[in-house]
C-alpha cells in the first residue's frame, strides 16, 4: 500500500469542477455511504463541510457535534452519502455519549470510513484508528490539521505511515480546503475497489487475551461462516457487551454485519 500520489494539478480548475458536485443535503439516492470517524475536535465537521458544501456547525472544543448529520456529493457520476459523526475516543467503551458514533461505525456498514486525525497528536489518535481498522477493510486516514503540525515542527512521513497502517493516508488542512480533492479521489478509488487495503491488526495484545480472542472468533466463525469481523465480535463479547449478545441471540447482528 502506498500513499496517494500528490495530485499534480491540485490547483487546476478541472480537478474540482469536472468531477465534483456538492449536493448538500440531497441524500435521496446514492451509490456509496461514507462515514467520518475520529477523535473529538479533529476537524471531522470541517472536512464534511468542505466536501458536501454544507454548514455543519464547527467549533474549537471537543463535543461540538453530538448528533449524526448527513450530506451528499457526486464525483465522476457516482453519488456518495456522507455521514458526519460525533467524536469518539474509543470503540471499546460503552459510554453513552459515544454511542451514536460507535453504533454507526459498527452497524451502519459504511462503504468507506474516513478516519480524521489531528496530525500533531497522532499517537493518541491512533488508539481509535487501530480499533477502526480492526473492523473495516476500506478506510482512509485523513491526516488533518497539517498546518498546525507544520507550525509545531512535526514532519510526518505519510508513505511509512500508510505502509504501517495498510490504508491510504491523505494529508489535509480542511479549514483551508487543502488536500480535499485528493481525499475525494481516494474515497472514490476505495469505493470502487481501485485501492485495496491491508489494514493493520493490533499486534501488542497480551498473550492470554489473544488466545481467548482466537478461540472465541474461531467458534464464532464456525457458527456464522460469513461474518466479516469475528475478531471484533470476540472483543465485544469478552468485554461483556450486552448489546452484541442480545443481537447475537436474536440473529439481528448477523443480518446487519453481512
Amino acid at each position: 500500500m502506498e500513499a496517494t500520489p500528490k495530485s499534480a494539478c491540485e490547483a487546476c480548475p478541472q480537478f474540482n469542477a469536472a468531477g465534483l458536485k456538492k449536493l448538500g443535503v440531497n441524500t435521496t439516492e446514492f451509490d456509496f455511504v461514507v462515514a467520518l470517524a475520529g477523535n473529538p475536535n479533529t476537524g471531522k465537521s470541517t472536512v464534511f463541510n468542505a466536501i458536501t458544501g454544507l454548514r455543519q456547525h464547527t467549533g474549537n472544543w471537543p463535543g461540538k457535534t453530538v448528533t449524526r448529520a448527513e450530506g451528499a456529493f457526486e464525483y465522476n457520476e457516482q453519488k456518495y452519502k456522507m455521514v458526519d459523526l460525533p467524536g469518539t475516543y474509543s470503540l471499546l467503551s460503552t459510554s453513552e455519549d459515544e454511542e451514536v458514533a460507535r453504533n454507526f461505525l459498527l452497524f451502519g456498514q459504511p462503504s468507506v470510513t474516513i478516519i480524521v486525525v489531528d496530525a500533531s497528536r497522532l499517537e493518541r489518535n491512533l488508539n481509535l484508528v487501530l480499533q477502526v481498522l480492526e473492523i473495516t477493510d476500506r478506510a482512509v486516514l485523513c491526516l488533518n490539521l497539517m498546518d498546525e503540525a507544520k507550525r509545531n515542527n512535526l514532519e510526518i512521513d505519510t508513505r511509512t505511515l500508510a505502509r504501517d497502517l495498510g490504508i491510504p493516508v491523505v494529508p489535509t488542512s480542511a479549514r483551508f480546503n487543502k488536500g480535499i480533492p485528493e481525499l475525494i479521489q481516494t474515497i472514490s478509488d476505495l469505493a470502487n475497489g481501485r485501492i485495496v487495503c491491508k489494514p493493520h491488526r493490533i499486534k501488542n495484545i497480551p498473550k492470554n487475551i489473544e488466545s481467548a480472542v482466537q478461540k472465541l472468533s474461531t467458534e464464532i466463525e464456525k457458527e456464522f461462516p460469513n461474518i466479516p469481523n469475528s475478531r471484533w465480535l470476540a472483543f465485544r463479547l469478552l468485554e461483556g457487551d450486552s448489546h452484541v449478545i442480545e443481537m447475537l441471540r436474536k440473529g439481528e447482528l448477523i443480518e446487519e454485519l453481512q
Binding site: 475516543y89 474509543s90 471499546l92 467503551s93 460503552t94 459510554s95 493518541r124 488508539n127
Partner: peptide
C-alpha cells in the same frame, strides 16, 4: 467501569 475505560482511552 466507564470512568476507568475513559481514562485509559484518554491515554
Amino acid at each position: 467501569g466507564e470512568s476507568r475505560r475513559r481514562l485509559l482511552d484518554l491515554g
